[in-house]
Amino acid sequence: MKFMFIVKSAHVGPPPPQLMEAVHKLADREIKAGRMLDNGGLMPLATGAQVRIIDGRLSVLDGPFVEAKEVIGGYAVFELQGKEEALASATEFMQLHKDLFPGWEGTCELRAFAPMGP
């Protein structure tokens, strides 16, 4: 089963180097274990833009977006046996944040890919 992990936080600013190092090690282990298929970090929301449909009309909005609370900072795609394994994996990832980034608050949302086909 394929899962996407989406990491969101209201926190701005770079994470401490120890966390980055630990996350890289974890990602390396997960890739070598054949579970992680893809991952990536995203640039700050302020550098992005949004194309919206409001009142039936297209409009383009450039960042920053004042109303944004939790912002997506990165994602990863995993091939896992099921939701339990996804939860175990996401918990391990968030435990690293808890240990190495005191004060940081955020969410790791895990979502299964919808199956293709009939």
Binding site: M1, I31, K32, A33, G34, R35, E79, Q81
Partner: peptide, 17 residues
């Protein structure tokens, strides 16, 4: 069908080590 994923996982492990 999960066996396919297990086999893929093992092959990814092999290609990395």
């Amino acid at each position: 069908p999960q066996l396919c994923n297990e086999a893929l996982r093992m092959a990814r492990v092999l290609t990395s080590i």
